[in-house]
Design a protein around this nucleic acid. Structure first.
Length: 489
RNA sequence: GCCGCCUUAGCUCAGUUGGUUAGAGCGCCAGAUUGUGGCUCUGGAGGUCCUCGGUUCGAGCCCGAGAGGUGGUACCA
């Protein structure tokens, strides 16, 4: 027995345990965002956690395992399945599968857990919750505008103060036009330029300039290769990324000056113009949704407008260090995703709330006003012979809608009071021999007691005062407890 | 993946040039208080000093390798 195997009690990294308070915060976000989506006429869709790996587009032609980044396993028919890494790819699969019978455009929202097999960080998990809305089957820029408006409304509904978030909007078409006019034709070089542009907020203009040219060495000594653009081309790209800021129409005017002329760029400008007009009609404030030419987003499937939601409030960790949470939501237009399955191009656009990251950020920034989860009313258990009395009292409270439980541990009364205190119970119900004999019940208001205790230093007096305690007729139990539970704290 | 830093009690950490039985604060449990959560006092439990190997009479401390964590960077569909 001495050599018995003892597993270490720990969760895999990036997988976190969420307790009542965390879950309440997440649920509050999900419920408010879902309500916004439904108000805009989106219907809910749930799909399974697993998809075939090829449906996720995560199958390397030469590898016998799906690519890094997903959690994959082989079914008993040897097909590779993978846990979904977002809610968009499953939607594309669903839309392709049911395209003939769906009402089009198909407007759906989805709430669900997604999994990514990558290195975790602050606010970055390997299992997290997203809340998506997508319109499949509309190429109108107004569809994008509506998605953006919902995102802005969603953040407000989730409880973020007006000035703590912003939605940044850009278009892949602008970026493509820029790349062409900058003379970047090689796909690898185009990719390098996009990645450099994406880092503007983190590295600043000088860092981006280095990455567009020869490359950059960071403070840890690691070297990142640059895009090797020529000098004038670098300045053109810099002028482009710096054209953001201010009112939407002003940004568009500046961008037109920088990249006007290329066919794709002009197309992007026209679409952004229509998105801007629609945002104004929808009542989206100029400073909540802005055009920002440095937004790139992931590199794979976006084909037009791209959106990214950013928290503006500075967030400090327990040690007072600044924490970078990254974007708390993003999306864009992906016109080719459904075509992967059907061969027919289907225009689509959507946005995804990073619910878990947003909850973590709210928590870290103290914006999470949710009260700590209250425990139930605790019925103190004195002796086994009277268990019936305790359970009857708990049942009465429950029937009246008041959460209640009988203490089921083995400890004495003192420990039971401590237990109720730790559970943040509003009240303890004391049904000892004396009370039962006299047809009464003693109820202790734990909040009130806590308050009164602050003024009492002497232990004897504290014990004799029994602060916050009252004894009533047994028949008054529910009414008396209700008064305590419903009293304003 | 690459670079840096870190790893001692549940948590935060101290631990002298390598030298008996590895400590503190907080937390936890119990008692003072036969039926009362706070405060105070007293007592108690709790440790493969990350792992493996090496050097040494002797290693928490020195050396090597590995693992885990963390920060940056890369990637992020």
């Amino acid at each position: 027995m001495t050599d018995a195997f003892r597993p270490e009690a720990r969760a895999p990294r990036g997988f976190i345990d969420k307790r009542a308070a965390d879950l309440r915060a997440e649920r509050r976000i999900v419920e408010s965002v879902s309500a916004v989506y439904e108000r805009y006429g989106f219907e809910r869709l749930d799909t399974g956690a697993f998809e075939y790996a090829d449906a996720l587009g995560k199958f390397l032609p030469d590898a016998d395992r799906p690519n890094e980044g997903v959690f994959a396993l082989q079914d008993d028919d040897e097909q590779w399945m993978a846990l979904r890494y977002d809610l968009t790819a499953p939607l594309a699969r669903f839309a392709a599968q049911h395209w003939e019978t769906l009402p089009k455009p198909f407007r759906r929202y989805a709430v669900g857990t997604v999994w990514r097999n990558e290195k975790p960080g602050p606010g970055r998990f390997r299992e997290f919750v997203q809340c998506d809305a997508d319109t499949v089957g509309s190429a109108r820029p107004e569809a994008d505008a509506e998605i953006i408006a919902m995102a802005v409304e969603g953040f407000a509904a989730a409880g973020l103060p007006q000035n703590d978030y912003v939605l940044k909007i850009n278009s892949r078409k602008l970026l493509n036009g820029l790349l062409t006019s900058a003379g970047a034709v090689d796909p690898g070089q185009r990719l390098a330029v996009l990645r450099a542009v994406d880092k503007l907020d983190r590295l600043g203009v000088e860092g981006v300039r280095l990455l567009l040219g020869a490359g950059r060495r960071d403070e840890s000594g690691a070297f990142t290769r640059g895009a090797e653009l020529a000098g004038p081309a670098i300045e053109a790209v810099i002028a482009f990324v710096e054209a953001g800021g201010g009112a939407r129409s002003a940004t568009l005017d500046r961008l037109a000056g920088v990249i006007g002329g290329s066919a794709e760029g002009d197309e992007g400008l026209e679409e952004l113009g229509r998105i801007g007009a629609a945002l104004t009609s929808l009542g989206v404030a100029e400073d909540r949704a802005v055009f920002d030419p440095s937004v790139v987003r992931g590199l794979e499937y976006y084909t037009g407008a791209v959106f990214e939601a950013e928290l503006l409030a500075e967030i400090l960790d327990e040690k007072g260090q600044k924490v970078r949470f990254g974007s708390v939501g993003g999306g864009g237009r992906y016109d080719d995703l459904v075509a992967r399955f059907t061969g027919q191009p289907v225009p689509a656009t959507g946005f995804s709330f990073g619910v878990s990251r947003l909850a973590a950020a709210l928590r870290a920034s103290g914006l999470d006003h949710a009260a700590e989860a209250r425990g139930p009313v605790v019925v103190i258990a004195f002796d086994a012979a009277s268990m019936g009395e305790y359970f009857a009292a708990a049942a009465e409270l429950r029937a009246a809608g008041l959460p209640a439980e009988v203490y089921l541990g083995a400890s004495g009364m003192k420990a039971q009071m401590k237990y109720a205190d730790r559970r943040l119970s509003p009240a303890a119900v004391i049904l000892g021999g004396d009370e039962i004999a006299s047809g009464q019940v003693t109820i202790k208001d734990l909040d009130l007691g806590r308050e009164l205790a602050a003024k009492v230093a002497d232990n004897r007096q504290w014990r004799e005062d029994r602060p916050g305690q009252l004894t009533v007729a047994r028949s008054e139990l529910v009414a008396a407890v209700r008064r305590i539970v419903e009293a304003p704290r």
